[in-house]
Design a binder for these strands. Structure first.
Lengths: 252, 252
DNA sequence: GCCAATTGTTTCGAATTGTTTCAGCGGCGA
DNA sequence: TCGCCGCTGAAACAATTCGAAACAATTGGC
């Protein structure tokens, strides 16, 4: 077995509260750079470039969550997920290169808690990891509850993707549905950039649908955002996609 | 690996506020020309002539933005973008020699923040760099951070390319479409210079079209500019292209 | 099962953009 | 100056794309 394991403690070992994240990806660069981003969020992480080494590491110390690339050389990613799931109730996030096919559904039905399509923004991955951990109750709701849920502030609005609650400039609260919240969060994580419909489909939590479904979701979000209307916050870029025009600040 | 790296600190190292820009281009002259222009705007810059050396440099010190030429010898430019994007939320601007094809879309969907076609005016590149940095919130527009958007003032008109809004001398506001805004911005960034139709096509944001489409866009812009008519602001240069005759001042 | 909420699909009209066409103009040489 | 020829402007036309609304399918609670 030529599997090489790179142990990579990226956070202060004294920080006993920090959670361990395993990354399984045969492309070492992606793993290391993901680990680096995780470190800046005070997560510990280990990088494995093969499924077997990941299983070894899993025996030695159980991580709180495993990020798995489906394109592993030595074992079908699905089988790895099954083995981990059989060993312990661990949270799993799947990475995949393919976009909106049945892939996503397969990944989720196999027990993965979330599914991310490449290429991805590492900040988005960390956000999903935190989200899954929060749902699993693993993310400290003690110190972290105050800081636990990230909120986005933009143009006097506040959006809390976890509670899916939107607070208008005048302070009025309203709920957004799951799909709308997912799409809005993607826009808020890459503000002032044009995002194509494909990208929004892949990263916005929608499974199998045509391009135009994004239009409808955008329209529904716009309607809620325009109730207390400033200028339109989501701009259409003809022939390209959509762009959130406001600047966004994420606060814990 | 025969990659040679040229480290090129072009600004005062004591100027801790200056941002670091990485330039990745196998044509050294182009890189140095860009670096020189960047220096006059008080940016620090490094020049890399290969993808691997750029990744090395990225490990040692993270730049605020990377300018990447897609025609690299040792690695597909797209892959380099993916690796950088996976590593950290760094801003990326893509240079490409090919003009109006689907290339532009690919570059942008890969996560690049902007896309510039060669040959380019280095001042335009710097303007785009500043624009991207401002969007990313990295450029200290100390006082003006609130507004954040650059505006062009010319002949008593004001144009805000970000909001795509045009303000007439009498103060009346009107919206311009995406394509018209792109073309108008190119003209405003190189005023009093004749710009060929090819140049305007490549840098004006339109992908696949004939020369004459520029004529129509010019015509539509002229119509909006002439509603409050001074002398014609866009002059036709017979056999060459178009020229904006007014002087332009860009303000933050 | 029934009802409500959510979400995707379809449809139609409007907006945006590119292409074609033609008349008029500019440049240039006889 | 005259006439030719390529270039440009304007308008009409065509092709995409997008927004809004209506409709249908799915989900989930009771």
């Amino acid at each position: 077995m030529q599997s090489t394991r790179h142990e990579n403690r990226t956070a202060d070992p004294e920080d006993s509260g920090s959670l361990l994240i395993d990354i399984v990806d045969d492309e070492r660069e992606i793993g290391e750079l993901l680990a680096k981003t995780l470190a800046s969020y005070r997560f510990r992480s280990r990088i494995f470039t093969s499924a077997f080494s990941a299983l070894d590491g899993f025996e030695q110390e159980r991580p709180a969550l495993v990020v798995i690339d489906l394109g592993l050389p030595d074992m079908d990613g699905m089988e790895l997920i099954n083995r981990l799931r059989a060993a312990a109730p661990v949270a799993i996030i799947v990475l995949s290169g393919r976009s909106h096919t049945g892939d996503r559904i397969m990944g989720l039905e196999l027990g993965a808690d979330d599914y991310i399509v490449k290429p991805f923004d590492p900040r988005e991955v960390v956000a999903r990891i935190r989200s899954v951990l929060r749902r699993s109750g693993l993310l400290d709701t003690q110190i972290q509850t105050v800081s636990g849920t990230q909120k986005a502030r933009f143009a006097n609005w506040v959006f809390d993707p976890h509670s899916m609650r939107l607070i208008s400039p005048s302070g009025q609260e309203s709920d957004v549905s799951t799909g709308e919240a997912a799409l809005l969060e993607i826009l808020l994580r890459s503000p002032k950039r044009v995002l194509s419909r494909d990208y929004l489909l892949d990263h916005g939590g929608s499974d199998d649908s045509l391009d135009r479904s994004i239009d409808v979701r955008i329209s529904r979000i716009r309607k809620k955002l325009s109730k207390e209307s400033d200028k339109p916050l989501i701009r259409t870029v003809y022939g390209s996609g959509y762009m959130l025009t406001a600047s966004v600040e994420w606060t814990e």
